[in-house]
Computed example of a mutant assay.
Amino acid sequence: MTDITATSLSQLGPRICILGPSNSGKSTLAAAIGRSRDLPPVHLDQLYHQPGTDWQPRPRAEFVALHDQAIQGERWVMDGNYTQCLLQRLARATGFILLDASTPLSMWRYVRRCWFDTDRKGALEGAKDSVKWSMLRYIAVVTPANRRRYDALFGEVALPKVRLATPPALAHFYRKEGLRSR
């Protein structure tokens, strides 16, 4: 497939898919793009988990139905991985952004958001974030393999796309596009 690399946010179109490891800044970026481009942000964590719970998943069929309804919109910026629905999401997307953050940085961001971020983008309504061993393990053990899969996927996706592989690259993108994280 053709490798199309976008040079600006406007080249990504009205339906932008953001992927990346846990705590890499996907939800914050989606909210910033949403404000800047008047695109409704869709945080897949909020669709996948039941509101008012301690991050309890919805039944799979319910999540897939919510996901598929969301991607039918004409305009959105959607953050989250949830690879069981990724193919249909990418089929509707007009642009793709891949973020990355090192495992230590992801761990630090996870703990910081649980302890200090009271107004976090993408937070689950009615839930309070708390540090969970299962999430720490996920970041340390599962995320490195996911990072390799996302990198391979980036090479295969034939959409206008942007790879922001380091925190300085992400910060530069914010500045260049006039985005604000809050």
Rank of each mutant, 00 (worst) to 15 (best):
A6F: 13
L9K: 02
L12G: 01
G13V: 03
P14E: 14
R15K: 13
I16S: 11
I18Y: 01
P21L: 00
S22Q: 11
K26G: 03
T28S: 13
L29K: 07
L29V: 04
L29Q: 00
G34F: 02
S36T: 06
L39V: 09
V42M: 08
H43L: 02
D45I: 03
T53D: 14
T53E: 15
Q56G: 04
H67V: 00
H67F: 12
H67T: 02
Q69W: 02
A70Q: 06
A70C: 02
G73T: 04
R75V: 09
V77N: 12
Y82V: 08
T83G: 02
C85V: 06
C85H: 01
L86Y: 01
Q88F: 00
Q88S: 15
L90W: 00
A91L: 04
A93D: 08
M107E: 15
V111P: 04
W115M: 05
D117H: 12
K121E: 08
G122M: 01
E125V: 13
K128P: 09
D129G: 10
S130M: 07
K132P: 05
S134V: 03
R149M: 13
D151W: 08
A152S: 09
L153N: 08
L153F: 05
G155K: 08
G155P: 04
V162W: 10
A165C: 11
Y174M: 08
R175T: 14
L179K: 07
R180V: 05
R180G: 09
